[in-house]
């Protein structure tokens, strides 16, 4: 099965069709996506800016990194669940959307970032407090994480600006008034 065929199949499942057909379900899920972004985004910013010594410099690194881990993960689950629901409802359209693929590529880089830095930075917060100095590696990890997530937010906003290629789409499109752009 090609990726396009997969996208078309996902989009025709019952719940993806139902999501697309209702004028209010989609914006509710989008609003929850944004609510999750506020929580998750603030956790990402606070943790990484603590590593850079900007936010909460008076607090121990471990206090910030370890205590925010759970709310950060809860926020991520909300954002990802809503994101997957929305992407499924418009899977075929998003197959042709350059910003969607930009966002997915950046998310793949987030996974790489986690593989590289989780063990050596984010799970070593207590050690940084003992030496009372934040290593360059941690600062690099923080800066890259911030750059990645802000780019992801901007690419996500870009998705709504790409017009779907009407000549290529099979599934029934959204009602006219539920456009996402402006």
């Amino acid at each position: 099965m090609s990726l396009l065929a997969f996208a078309q199949w996902v989009q025709t499942t019952g719940w993806a069709t139902a999501l697309r057909g209702s004028w209010y379900v989609y914006p509710i899920i989008l609003s929850l996506h944004l609510t999750g972004i506020a929580v998750f985004g603030a956790m990402i910013l606070t943790v990484n800016l603590r590593l850079l010594g900007v936010v909460m410099p008076k607090r121990r690194v471990a206090d910030v990194v370890d205590q925010l881990r759970t709310p950060k993960r809860v926020g991520f689950v909300i954002v990802a669940t809503c994101g997957i629901l929305m992407a499924s409802s418009k899977a075929e359209e998003y197959y042709y959307n350059i910003f969607f693929w930009t966002k997915m590529s950046l998310l793949a880089l987030v996974a790489v970032h986690a593989l590289v830095f989780h063990g050596s930075v984010y799970s070593k917060a207590a050690e940084m407090d003992r030496t009372s100095r934040i290593p360059g590696r941690a600062k690099l990890a923080a800066a890259l994480s911030l750059l990645l997530w802000i780019s992801i937010a901007c690419a996500g906003r870009g998705i709504g600006y790409i017009e779907p290629p009407l000549d290529k789409l099979h599934a029934q499109l959204l009602p006219i008034h539920t456009h996402e752009g402006r």
Partner: peptide, 26 residues
Amino acid sequence: IVGFAVTVGTIALVDFRLLGWGMRRQ
């Protein structure tokens, strides 16, 4: 979007603390 995430997120963090969900060492 970035601005609202910072504002709402930081306020939410205080709210979570009030609810006892996080940052309990502070």
